[in-house]
Nucleic acid binder design. Structure first.
Lengths: 345, 345
DNA sequence: CTGAAAGCGCTTACAG
DNA sequence: CTGAAAGCGCTTACAG
């Protein structure tokens, strides 16, 4: 770094032959400047390739126009997660549109470190993505910094959070499968600690119950998975393949696409026909669901809406607005694909 | 924001009953402080939940320990892109380990805006991901800021860039398919402007040529796709299905997994058997390639290595190291999956 | 070991 | 319309 990297306002002003104050005014656009002066300053800006320091500006304005996004997740994929990736894409675009930029951190152990980091960076606000422990929320609350949660669970009614209406989605999934004529269900459910997995399962079972179908009556079999990955779905299905066949379940529901796809792959490898032998349904409408064969019937999640609104709601919090809704729910819809198509007859 | 958000060093020092200098020393760990004083300061830190302002610190130290990552891409998915997402995950982790944080921007029109933004933020360095136009590179160069390119193309030998050895990968793909006994090839090639697509195609064709197989001899048919998405692969295969069947091609190679998967889906929907009727091979080793049925034979890309090294090489540039390699290439390997398995006999 | 002072690069009243 | 001055919250020589 032997060469000059950045010029300061002082140097800029000197070159233009004006005071720092004046230079500052024409650059920021706040305040008056005669056409002549403005012209000279602008020329100097060009000549020096002057870039005003956002750092210095933040220092005095007490605003950084940066938003911290922390994704809490045990393991990879984080950004490349099929759902979170989409949400982050939307957050990036929405932030851009509103004049914010994004500091992105991933945090695997739900530590307070990443939060501290964001605090030190003096971000204007915080978007917390995914499940996070109560102590993290409690910690953030103490700092009086605008923040909100995306796709996380909390009993705390004060916390602004955006979630899918997973329970209703689960119900709709059940309705669809029942409408297709299924009466015996095999379920692979993701980690119960995750709000979305547990609610989807709850909604699904609830709806079945109203059709007179339940675990206790023997028409429904639930398998709990400690993970929500393709691999675990695959492995569970391998493990329980016999059970599955013997139980004569005609439909498989998983609380997310990954688990469903893993199970489906295991079944296809064993020569089962889908949807001929068994109908399969996932949840999330990940891009993959449309790429596989047969394509996967699933329930949509409004990643676009969630990402967009996360930024705009946070912006409202940052601007000190009072009546920001604490809970925003997004409706989910069944997307019927090949994996649950009835056989033609 | 009616409540106190952040305390300053001055307030901290007052509470501890020391000078700002002293407080600063115990917090930063640079310089001496008696146990007694240190104790008092630390207690004050706890009491106030004092978070030193990274903004003020950056102001004086002229270092932000922030790295700007700009992903240049026309359209979504950007972060959720199957390959870039993985690279970004690795960049995030590697940055964390080296004490850097990430400013993430996506730029759809390859404008200079996002670069200007990063410059104003005074990031320590820049990671430019994906194809970008020459004018962007030329612009960045003027600012004497450490930067490097990931997965982009450039004729400029000065530019530090990290790429896959796509040509060798293409050759290996050809070898594998020939070894499987194929002699008539159908190729779906992604956008020629992209370095990786064009090199993969080049390597593939080159290798075939040495086997005496070529476009001019009629054993190879190349389809150019203007996009690199699943949708375009799917659509092209629908469109050229007749051509494909009539040409009796026994193998399909695509310059990335997405195109391959799109084409495969179209074929499966038409009832073709894979690999029975046709073998299919992609490139990138996206997560999807293992999830589909049949699983897709592909060529690996070392996303982990690229992401990790991008950060460490940039760190070396930031620290003023001279002999940073301009070009780092990553080897790719064929991953044999079901889609090219020979029939048992 | 500790403190007063200068300075990083801006913005913002306040005079003129 | 323009400039001098103070100040944002730190760090870093420099005295003591």
């Amino acid at each position: 770094m032997n060469q000059k990297l950045n010029y300061s306002l002082r140097e800029l002003a000197e070159l233009a032959g004006v005071s720092k104050s004046t230079a500052s005014r024409v650059i920021s656009g706040n305040g008056y400047a005669s056409p002549d002066v403005r012209e000279r300053v602008l020329q100097a800006v060009d000549q020096l390739r002057y870039k005003p320091s956002a750092v210095a500006r933040a220092m005095v304005s007490k605003r950084t126009y940066n938003i911290g996004v922390i994704v809490f997740r045990d393991r990879l994929p984080i950004v490349s997660h099929t759902l979170y990736g989409r949400i982050i894409d939307e957050i990036l675009m929405a932030a851009e549109a509103l004049g914010y930029s994004i500091f992105l951190k991933t945090d695997r152990e739900m530590s307070l470190r990443s939060t501290d980091y964001m605090l030190e960076q003096r971000v204007d606000g915080l978007i917390l993505v995914s499940r996070l422990q109560k102590n993290v929320i409690d910690y953030v609350k103490k700092f009086n910094i605008p923040y909100l949660m995306v796709n996380g669970s909390t009993e705390d009614p004060e916390v602004v959070h955006l979630v899918s209406n997973d329970e209703a989605g689960g119900e709709r999934a059940a309705e669809h499968l029942v409408a297709c004529g299924h009466r015996r269900f095999f379920i692979i459910a993701g980690p119960g600690e995750h709000r979305s997995h547990s609610l989807r399962l709850k909604g699904f079972c609830q709806r079945l119950q109203r059709f007179g179908l339940s675990v206790s009556e023997g028409q429904v079999r639930i398998l709990q998975s400690s993970e929500s990955s393709f691999e675990s779905g695959h492995q569970l299905m391998e493990e329980y393949y016999q059970t599955f066949r013997e139980g004569q379940y005609s439909a498989l529901f998983s609380t997310n696409d990954m688990l469903a796809l893993g199970a489906m792959k295991a079944m296809l490898d064993r020569g089962m026909r889908i949807p001929g032998d068994v109908a399969i349904m996932g949840y999330d409408n990940t891009d993959l669901s449309i790429m596989v064969h047969p394509s996967l019937t699933t329930v949509s999640v409004d990643a676009t809406g969630i990402g967009r609104d996360a930024v705009s709601l946070l912006d409202r919090l940052i601007r000190g607005e009072e009546n920001v809704p604490r809970l925003t729910e997004y409706e989910s819809h069944v997307l019927i694909r090949q994996s649950t198509k009835r056989k033609e007859e």
